[in-house]
Amino acid sequence: MALPLIFLSSGLLATALTGSSLASQHDVTDGPYVFAPDRKPDNASWICHSEHKQTHIDSPKVLRPENCGELPQPTLHELKNTVEADSFSGVDTIVAFSDVHGQYDVMHTLLRNQGVIDKDDNWALGKAHLVITGDMFDRGPQINEVLWLVYQLDKQAQEAGGRLHLLMGNHEQMVLKGDLRYIHPRYKVTEELTDRKYDALYGTETELGQWLRSKHTLVKINDMLFMHGGISPDWLETDLTISKANNLYREHIDTPKQEIKQSELLNFLFYKNGPTWYRGYFKGKNMLNEKQIDQLLAHFGVNHIVVGHTSQDRVLGRFNNKIIAIDSSIKRGESGELLWVEDGKLSRGLYQGGKVSLTSDQD
């Protein structure tokens, strides 16, 4: 008699071969992962103490199952797919930070203490613009908590006449392309229990995946240009504009790496010295000088370039604040800072509250 065939996913096959599951070894609570085929939210997956649960979505608010911790209960919105402008002028107040890497508690405390959100975690900046220069993903243990809070604030900011700009960093690009080297171990449990690779949980048929794919990689506000890594002199050898680059990033975020590598322009944008990877404003033999910085500023018609990606102990000014580094090492899970720009005045927003003037490290 022929034996039945049983097909296992790669994750389940690995479990079968080792004889034990990750879920049996760890108590993980995670989610929600909202699936939205045809851009219509349908169901949500939750991990409740290492048990996979699913809920049907029949209202904008996604309700978590019982005994599932304090996971986000987001209110979904149709604005998630909107591609916003990537250049703004006449903005009185700008706030910026970067590189959260799943450290929700630090981000939450910083935003509360700086009055970016109120006691109920709602947008409190009115018509101001908040810029996050990428790297919400990887390393830390609370990626979804970070993303759902930012998702909520994105809608509330628009309703208040302000804006939230979540820019794509190299780790967003890595995860969406299936490079999962840096995910926290707890998400291996989520992969096993949902029988989906981690990147598929943010795929094109998910609520957060669609939202992320609408985002820019660069944005210009007043006299400031924001991105994750930095603008290298190589940009000046291309015919790129901010809008053209943003469109290429969105168009090719799901293009396989081997195809990206075959295009000189795409290879520059996604890898090499492109805006999500460049570190040439800081220490090293290839660090730019002030004359080269001035050439980049003149090309874009700005006075400041604001970047994350390269870790600092605080919000840091370089080259007389022409370069502003806002990766204040939130990723360490201990503290962090914000950049405040109020009527052109530059300040550091401190973790415990309060502000101090931003002075350049060369002053």
Rank of each mutant, 00 (worst) to 15 (best):
V146F: 11
V146C: 15
Y151G: 05
V106K: 05
W148Y: 14
D120W: 09
E145A: 14
N144F: 12
I117Q: 05
Q152V: 03
Y151F: 12
Q152L: 06
P141V: 02
M107D: 08
R139E: 11
D135R: 02
K155A: 14
R112Q: 13
D120L: 11
H101F: 00
N122F: 08
R112G: 04
G134L: 03
M136H: 12
W148N: 07
H129E: 13
Q152I: 00
S98D: 08
I117M: 08
I143D: 07
D92A: 14
L147D: 11
D154M: 03
A124E: 01
K119V: 12
L153S: 07
L111E: 01
F97A: 08
Q152K: 15
G140H: 06
T93C: 09
Y151L: 03
I117Y: 06
D120S: 14
D118N: 15
V91L: 04
L110V: 04
K127M: 12
L149W: 05
K127Y: 12
V131S: 03
H101D: 00
D154V: 00
P141K: 07
D118C: 13
Q114Y: 10
D135L: 05
V116Q: 03
V106S: 07
G126C: 09
I94D: 02
D120R: 14
L111V: 08
Q142C: 11
K119E: 15
F97H: 12
L130H: 00
D138W: 02
N122D: 11
I94Q: 03
M107K: 08
N113H: 13
I143Y: 09
F137Q: 07
L147N: 10
L130Q: 05
N144E: 15
P141A: 10
V150G: 01
M107P: 10
I94G: 02
V95E: 02
R139C: 07
D92V: 09
S98I: 10
H108Q: 13
A128D: 08
T93D: 12
Y151M: 00
V116D: 09
D154L: 01
D118R: 10
A128V: 03
D99L: 03
T109L: 03
G102H: 01
A124W: 02
S98N: 08
L149V: 04
D121V: 03
D99V: 10
H129Q: 15
V95N: 02
P141E: 05
R112E: 11
N122V: 04
V146E: 11
P141G: 05
Q103I: 04
K155V: 08
D92G: 06
V91T: 12
E145D: 15
V100N: 06
V106C: 08
V100D: 01
V146W: 09
R112S: 11
M136R: 06
V146Q: 09
V95M: 12
L153K: 00
D99S: 01
T109A: 13
L110S: 01
G126E: 10
T109V: 10
V146N: 13
E145H: 14
V131N: 01
K155R: 14
W148E: 09
D120I: 07
L153H: 04
Q103D: 10
P141N: 10
I94Y: 04
K127N: 14
D154H: 12
